[in-house]
Design a binder for these strands. Structure first.
Lengths: 204, 204
DNA sequence: AGGGTTATATACTCTTTAGTACAATACAAC
DNA sequence: GTTGTATTGTACTAAAGAGTATATAACCCT
């Protein structure tokens, strides 16, 4: 009954790997969205039965939240590496090209689960929709903070509107997500990314 | 049994207006998406019972298709007016600003039903998802055709890649749809539109 | 006024949905 | 080996899903 998920080796051991199961669940939500993903879809993709799912992850909503948490922190993400670039322009470049490449990558579902996981949805999904909106807004303000830093460091002109800049970038990234989920190729999305970059101020 | 929907005044007259009912249905699909919109949601919004819905519109899928058909052709759309602008740049400007205004308009659901109606969805919605993708791609190629015309008319340089240009614009418009459906204001979206316009070639 | 025709409301069908009860099972600790 | 604990598989529940049968009501035409 402890709140922390302790790995005490007591009782029958779990027969599946939670991390792999979570990845499978993520793929289902990514492809079908929260409303479109049924528990049957989830359990059959995860290779487990419903009681195992419920005991390990809570319920459908909590499973979704854990899945997108994993999505955000897994190594192949492009967002955090983008923020770590050395100049504002390089941040924007890394972000747009990273989005173009990652979202069309055929080794996982196309697009972005943070966008298509719950965009227009039932009341049952209203909670997760709000969470996704908040996360996207958080990304936007993280990006703005990075550009404020760039101003302080002198690689972004001080009269730039960092909020508008970050919103513009996130808008294009979201648009790229739509295109990718509609079947656009990496090459096509890289073109879009490069065209979007033309609007971005460079101080060279 | 005739295939054409003739308005023969025979039998009991319909007690509701099909057009208004269709608009109500559109609002539901727009807000909840295809998967998230239940028949109860639809019938209660339309103010009719299920048999009326089925006799008037076929089934859920056909109702959705008729709803988006109405969506595309209703007067408040911005796409066709954009194509009618006199120069390539004005087309782009009208398109982006029109998207920013229309999609944040509080007089109807925010965002774009062609995007959020069925983005990631169940197998039951796979058909309508494909239709939406095709419609969006059609818009993209209509825009490209318009830019090809602009080349011929001399208001767009002949070495521009019209396909990349139209894809870029549609990507930003789709991104604006996401932002609007997440609660962005018109002013914020107009900023995005103007920033996106900076990438667009002007021959002035 | 009566017959033909179509829409309406109620009540139903069958399937699928999310979530759970329970008995059997597999391990650690003693 | 027995006990305690936690997971597993099967079978279940109650609600909601899409779609329909049927009887009644409202209209036009003759």
């Amino acid at each position: 009954m402890s709140a922390v998920s302790c790995t005490a080796a007591v009782g029958r051991p779990r027969a599946f790997d939670m991390q792999t199961a979570l990845e499978k669940a993520l793929d289902v939500f990514w492809t079908k969205g929260y409303d479109g993903a049924s528990l049957s879809d989830l359990t059959s993709a995860m290779g487990i039965n419903k009681p195992s799912l419920y005991s390990a992850f809570g319920n459908k909503e909590q499973l979704f939240l854990k899945a997108i948490e994993f999505y955000e922190t897994r190594p192949c993400g492009f967002f955090k590496p983008a923020l770590a670039q050395s100049t504002a322009y390089k941040v924007a470049e890394f972000m747009l090209l990273g989005a173009a490449q990652t979202m069309s990558d055929p080794s996982h579902p196309q697009g972005c689960v943070m966008v298509q996981g719950a965009l227009a949805c039932s009341e049952a999904a209203a909670g997760v929709k709000e969470v996704l909106i908040k996360r996207r807004q958080q990304s936007e303000s993280d990006l703005r903070d990075r550009f404020e830093l760039a101003k302080a460091q002198g690689d972004l002109s001080s009269d730039e509107d960092t909020e508008a800049l970050s919103r513009y970038l996130c808008t294009v990234v979201n648009g790229i997500a739509i295109q990718a989920s509609s079947g656009a190729s990496e090459a096509q999305l890289v073109d879009v990314a490069n065209m979007a970059l033309k609007s971005f101020p460079r101080n060279s």
